[in-house]
Computed example of a mutant assay.
Amino acid sequence: MSANQVAAAVPAEARDALLSRVEDRLRDLFAGEKSRWSAVDPRAAVPVEAVATLVGAGGKRLRPSFCLDGFLAAGGDPALEPVAVDAAAALEVLQAFALLHDDVLDDSPLRRGKPTAHERHAAAHRDAGWAGEPRRYGEGVAALAGDLAHVYASRLVSALSPAAREIWHELSIEIMIGQYLDIRVAAERIADPELSRWIALCKSGRYTVHRPLTLGAAIADRLDLAPAFERYGAALGEAFQLRDDLIDAFGDSTVSGKPTQLDFAQQKMTLLVALAIQRDDRISRLLADGGTGDGATLAQMITDLDVRDEVERRIDHLVEQAQAAIEAAPLDAGWREELSRVAVQVAYRQK
Rank of each mutant, 00 (worst) to 15 (best):
A7N: 01
L18E: 14
R25G: 12
D28C: 05
W37D: 05
S38T: 09
P42D: 03
R43W: 02
V51C: 15
A52D: 14
T53F: 01
T53P: 00
G56H: 14
G58Y: 00
F66P: 05
A74H: 04
V83L: 08
V83A: 07
D86E: 15
A89P: 11
A90F: 03
E92I: 15
A98I: 14
H101S: 00
V104W: 04
D107M: 06
D107K: 14
K114E: 11
H118E: 13
E119N: 04
A123T: 03
G129R: 10
G129Q: 13
A131R: 10
P134I: 10
P134F: 12
E139F: 02
E139L: 11
G140H: 04
A149N: 01
S154Q: 14
S161R: 10
R189I: 00
I190F: 09
L195S: 04
S196E: 04
W198N: 00
A200D: 11
K203P: 05
K203D: 04
S204P: 07
R206W: 04
V209S: 10
R211N: 05
G216V: 07
I219K: 02
L236V: 09
A239V: 06
R243K: 09
T254E: 15
V255E: 03
G257F: 09
A265G: 00
A265M: 01
Q266H: 09
M269W: 01
L286F: 00
T297A: 06
L298V: 15
Q300D: 13
E312F: 09
E312I: 09
L331D: 10
A333Y: 01
A343T: 08
